[in-house]
Deep mutational scan, measured.
Amino acid sequence: KLLSSIEQACDICRLKKLKCSKEKPKCAKCLKNNWECRYSPKTKRSPLTRAHLTEVESRLERLE
């Protein structure tokens, strides 16, 4: 599967780190437990900047 097509777990399953069936409108866990089942939009991760990478590398060197 391509990364862009990976389905996201519902908010509660993601928060509780449960295996989500990803069914809509309610996944199996939410249906069974009568929880409100919501699927928040995916958040875009910002790409690493060179400055951040350099900072992490220098912190790693100090720890070694």
Rank of each mutant, 00 (worst) to 15 (best):
C13N: 02
L15Y: 15
Q8N: 10
Y39V: 09
E57A: 02
K22W: 04
A51R: 11
I12E: 12
T43G: 09
P41D: 09
L3C: 14
W35A: 15
I12G: 12
P47R: 07
K24I: 15
S4A: 12
K32L: 07
K16Q: 01
I6D: 06
D11M: 05
S4F: 13
T43A: 13
N33F: 09
K24T: 15
H52K: 06
R14M: 03
P25M: 02
E57R: 08
E23A: 13
C37E: 01
L48F: 06
S5C: 12
E61P: 02
E23T: 14
P25W: 02
C10I: 00
L53W: 06
A51H: 11
V56E: 06
N34Q: 15
L63S: 03
V56T: 08
E57M: 03
T49E: 01
R45E: 08
L48W: 07
E64L: 09
Q8G: 06
K42E: 05
P41I: 03
Q8V: 05
S21H: 03
T54I: 07
I12T: 11
H52W: 09
S4H: 12
L31D: 14
K19M: 00
K1F: 14
L48M: 08
E23G: 10
S5G: 11
K17S: 05
P47D: 09
T54Q: 11
C30P: 02
E64A: 04
V56F: 03
S58K: 12
C20G: 06
L48H: 01
C30F: 05
L60A: 12
E36V: 13
C13F: 00
T54V: 07
S40V: 07
R59A: 09
N33K: 10
S46V: 02
I6L: 10
S21P: 06
L60H: 05
L60E: 01
R59P: 03
E36P: 14
S58G: 14
L31Q: 13
L2Q: 15
K17M: 02
P25F: 00
R50Q: 05
K44R: 12
C10T: 04
K32T: 12
K26D: 09
I12H: 13
C10H: 00
R45I: 00
E7K: 09
C37R: 04
K32C: 08
S58W: 13
R59H: 08
L3N: 13
K16P: 00
A28Q: 14
K19L: 07
A51C: 10
T43F: 08
L2W: 13
C37K: 01
K1I: 05
R38C: 15
C10Y: 04
S4I: 14
A9C: 03
D11K: 00
L48P: 05
P47I: 02
L18A: 15
A28C: 10
C27E: 03
C10N: 07
K26I: 15
S40E: 05
C27D: 07
E57G: 00
K16W: 05
N34P: 02
K16I: 01
L60C: 14
P25D: 03
K42F: 10
K1D: 06
R45Y: 01
R62M: 13
R14T: 06
K42W: 06
R38N: 15
T54E: 09
C30N: 08
E64S: 12
R38P: 05
L60I: 08
V56D: 08
K44Y: 08
R62N: 06
R50I: 04
L53G: 02
Q8M: 10
C30Q: 01
R14G: 01
H52T: 01
Q8S: 13
R62E: 03
L18N: 12
L15T: 12
T49C: 06
P41L: 03
R14S: 06
K29Y: 05
K16L: 01
L18G: 15
K22Q: 08
L48E: 02
N34R: 12
C30D: 03
N33C: 11
W35H: 12
L18V: 03
C20D: 04
P25N: 04
L3V: 12
L53E: 10
L2H: 14
K24R: 14
C20H: 02
S58I: 15
A9V: 08
A9Q: 08
A9I: 09
K19S: 06
Y39Q: 07
R50C: 00
E23F: 07
K44W: 08
W35D: 09
E57F: 08
E61N: 11
T49I: 05
R45F: 00
K24E: 13
S5Y: 10
K32A: 09
C13S: 00
S21R: 02
S21W: 02
K1M: 15
V56S: 01
T49H: 07
K19G: 15
L3I: 13
K29H: 00
S46T: 11
L15N: 11
K1W: 03
L31I: 12
E61I: 10
Y39I: 02
Y39W: 07
S40A: 08
C27I: 02
K19I: 05
T54H: 04
S21Y: 01
H52N: 06
K17I: 05
Y39N: 03
L63V: 04
L48T: 06
I6M: 14
S4R: 07
S4G: 08
E36F: 09
R59K: 10
T43Y: 00
S21I: 01
C37D: 08
K26V: 11
W35E: 09
L3T: 11
C30H: 04
K29D: 05
T49R: 00
I12A: 11
K17H: 11
L60D: 02
S5T: 09
